[in-house]
Nucleic acid binder design. Structure first.
Lengths: 246, 246
DNA sequence: CGAGCAGTTGAGAGATGTCAAATACAGTGG
DNA sequence: CCACTGTATTTGACATCTCTCAACTGCTCG
């Protein structure tokens, strides 16, 4: 069952029964992974594409001095390595943050989808380009937002992305990652992340207890973060399909 | 003439004469733009795809407080808005840094290429995914590299990318941007960029006079930056084509 | 109950920002 | 060719942000 993936695509695309049926058939098995487990490592040439079903994973790189940089969060409905399937060698690693369920899809199956199902081909392009848009927003956050705004912005982004796959309520979600993970995301020390988090709590913008995040006033947090969800491109396009309309 | 674009693709792909001929036919005109001119603005829905022929351009966003974040450099051979052509609304702006020559390609022409020329379709996927890989490297630079290493890394990256389109010698190139542009790239103040630049000069890692950059010892700079060009995926893949091989 | 990891706190060091002024440089009009 | 003007670069002084180190607390799980 690829529910979160299909759910995500259906925000943007109208899938035919054939499209949905094709998606239901792609799985070549499901794996259960514990927290902090690598799914793919930098340098590998993956034979399969992995789809996150549940839990939090991330793209990351380790630098020569041992520090880690988290480059993206992967949540239910996200594909781990379309890039690896197409570029060949992975230029970064993918690993779990929390325990995860992962669907394994043979590389050829994905390629067949793109050639035989135009809408799905379009949808895969869309998912890659949205991932790129998220990356751009992270660059902006790292480069030009204050630490507290940056953190708030990421919490808003995760809220909206989780809502799109039915893993968040209107104002809360499970965030099964540590402050250390947040540090490697924000490019800060864990000590400083702790203080920034306390600052957001003090302003009543977030309530984070254990792994549960709840947001007393979503609009207030979005305003504080200057969050504009346009870059997630979840709504149907104001222009039709990519595909020639005939 | 799409020379830099074709030159870039041929590092990685073997284009047929038909492929090359198709690429030669895509231009619907060329525009000459001065420095600091917008090519596309956030919110627009582009009808054309723009290809940089000469000069430096960038993707950027302006934040509510007026500060600018540069998200990517676009150099000769780079497409400005494949994303806009597919996602619809632009979620960021594209503008020139130096004067630029830009080739205009109708959106439909690009779509036709992807459906009628499998190798070119693959090549376009590749160019999008490499752009994403560059973005990941920028996230790492912003998050976890020191300011001087980050700057050095970007200078290495631009060196290799310009070499791939014949716009750099083995150890030098024209860098027609200001220190202010570098600040918005590195997420630093212009004052600090100036000091970091002086630091690199003091270490004899770079010689930057006016707009000409020359690198006394390329290996030394790459070592200092911990630069590994794997993420640019310029060499032919260790696996064959994306396309089903039949 | 104890071990270990995550979270928190305090103090001082280092990096980077801001402000303001001085210098260098490029392009323009006379 | 020169003076003039506006922009880019450079410098200094001081403020702020973030880091490091080290200790302490609290929670979870075996």
């Amino acid at each position: 069952m690829l529910n979160p993936f299909i759910q995500k695509l259906e925000h943007r695309f109208t899938l035919s029964d054939a499209d949905r049926a094709a998606l239901e058939r792609v799985s070549a098995g499901e794996r259960r992974l514990g927290p902090r487990a690598d799914i793919i490592r930098e340098g590998e040439i993956p034979d399969h594409v992995y789809l996150i079903q549940s839990g939090f994973a991330c793209r990351y790189k380790i630098l020569p001095n041992g520090s880690r940089s988290i480059i993206a969060y992967l949540i239910p409905g996200d594909l781990c390595d379309l890039n690896g399937a197409i570029l060949g060698e992975m230029d970064h690693s993918v690993g779990t943050l929390s325990a995860c369920n992962v669907v394994v899809i043979p590389r050829e199956t994905i390629l067949d989808l793109t050639t035989q199902y135009p809408t799905l081909n379009h949808a895969l392009w869309w998912s890659v380009l949205v991932e790129e848009a998220i990356l751009r927003e992270w660059v902006v956050g790292l480069g030009r937002r204050s630490a507290d705004q940056h953190l708030a912005h990421i919490l808003c982004e995760v809220l909206v992305r989780l809502q799109a796959v039915g893993h968040a309520t209107v104002d809360s979600y499970e965030l099964p990652i540590t402050q250390g993970d947040l540090s490697d995301t924000l490019g800060l020390s864990n000590v400083h992340v702790n203080r920034v988090l306390q600052e957001l709590r003090r302003k009543d913008l977030v309530v984070l207890k254990g792994k549960s995040l709840s947001i007393p006033n979503v609009d207030a947090l979005k305003t504080f973060a200057e969050f504009n969800p346009n870059y997630l491109h979840l709504k149907p396009s104001r222009r039709g399909s990519l595909l020639p309309q005939r």
